[in-house]
Amino acid sequence: MTSSKVDATQLNDADLAAHLAHCAGQILCNVRASGLFSPKALGKAGDQTANQFLVHALREARPDDGLLSEEEKDNSERLNQSRVWIIDPVDGTREYGEERSDWAVHVGLSINGVPAVGAVALPGLDGGIVIRTDRSQAVPPPPAKLRMVVSRTRPAPEAVAVAEKIDAELVPMGSAGAKAMAVILGQADIYLHSGGQYEWDSCAPAAVALAHGLHASRIDGAPLIYNQEDTYMPDLLICRREHAEKVLDAIRAA
């Protein structure tokens, strides 16, 4: 079996992000299809295999850019670079290991701290899809009763309280990327998280959400700023712009 060679150095940032997210997703599906691993071992194997692919590919394609990965030892040199790729090889390792569909691959690019370019692959969906910053699609209109995606295992108390205040339906789902993309795909209207995350959990999803005209911020309304020395970013709000103030007001009240 042969494949056409791609000169990654000739791809623009959006094409590179989407290509890498798609290829990493295929690799992960192949690892899972091997049938060789228990759920816990499958998650570890997938994380490490996809990470190696993404890290080597980005260092080959963008040698002058910084890199931050959940599965790679952090290098402080990135703090001196304006362009930093922030990746999560398997967002939703538990869901991936359990052979669910609500997991994702994140490939994001922060430019001067802003989530500027990115792609989120959802390989577990039928046929697999990649949602990217440069190919925005119309977000379906919301239903009469808003829907809020929350963790399927540990919904944040703040999210539950806000959902009650604005009379939103809770929709349990796995990874952060899957939740954020659910808003774009019209499967949900609000993604509110306050239970602790890191930059790789939200950089690519935030970039894609913003490119689709959605609101993306911290839960106090502050902008999302990436490539920080401390990569902990505990909270996130992604929703339709017309719902942002309503949700932010409910957060303050809660």
Rank of each mutant, 00 (worst) to 15 (best):
S69H: 07
I27V: 15
V117S: 08
V247D: 01
A104S: 15
G196T: 07
S38W: 00
P157K: 04
A116M: 11
L36I: 01
S69D: 01
R154C: 09
V6I: 15
V130R: 09
V107M: 03
T49R: 14
L146P: 05
A222M: 11
E60G: 10
V105F: 09
E164Y: 02
S175Y: 08
T49F: 00
I190D: 01
G196F: 00
Y226K: 02
V139Q: 03
D65H: 14
A253E: 14
E245Q: 15
L11Y: 06
D74G: 07
L214Q: 12
H56N: 11
W103A: 02
A121R: 03
A33T: 08
I129M: 12
A57G: 03
A207K: 05
H19M: 10
S136Q: 14
R152I: 06
L248N: 05
I190F: 00
N80H: 13
I86Y: 03
K179N: 13
V55L: 08
E229C: 06
A41R: 13
A161G: 12
S101V: 14
Q10I: 04
D91F: 04
S76I: 15
D134T: 14
L58M: 08
A24W: 06
E71G: 09
A211C: 13
A222W: 03
T93V: 04
A206N: 01
A104L: 02
L210Y: 04
H243N: 13
A144W: 01
L125V: 11
G118W: 10
D65P: 00
A57K: 13
M148I: 03
S136C: 14
G43L: 07
A206P: 10
A61L: 00
K44F: 02
S38R: 14
I225H: 07
H22Y: 05
A119P: 01
Y191T: 04
P140A: 01
N80C: 11
S82M: 06
L28K: 10
H193F: 12
K44A: 14
A8V: 10
R78C: 05
Y232G: 03
L68Q: 02
T231S: 15
M233S: 12
I129T: 14
I86D: 05
N30R: 15
T231V: 13
D91G: 00
K73P: 14
P39Y: 12
L11N: 02
A250V: 08
T9H: 09
I131H: 13
D88H: 07
E199L: 09
M1E: 09
I87G: 06
T153C: 07
V162E: 07
I184K: 01
D13N: 15
G43V: 04
A178R: 01
H243V: 09
G35Y: 08
L248M: 07
V120F: 08
P123G: 02
A216V: 10
V183W: 08
A161K: 10
A61C: 10
L28N: 13
A17I: 10
A57D: 05
M148D: 01
I238P: 01
E169N: 01
G92C: 02
G196C: 05
D249E: 14
H212L: 03
R32F: 00
V247H: 04
K145R: 15
E169T: 14
D235Y: 06
K145P: 07
S82K: 15
L16W: 10
K145F: 06
E70G: 12
G43I: 07
D167R: 14
R154F: 13
A211R: 02
V208H: 10
L146I: 06
G66R: 09
A121Y: 04
E70Y: 10
I131C: 11
E99S: 12
L214W: 02
A116W: 03
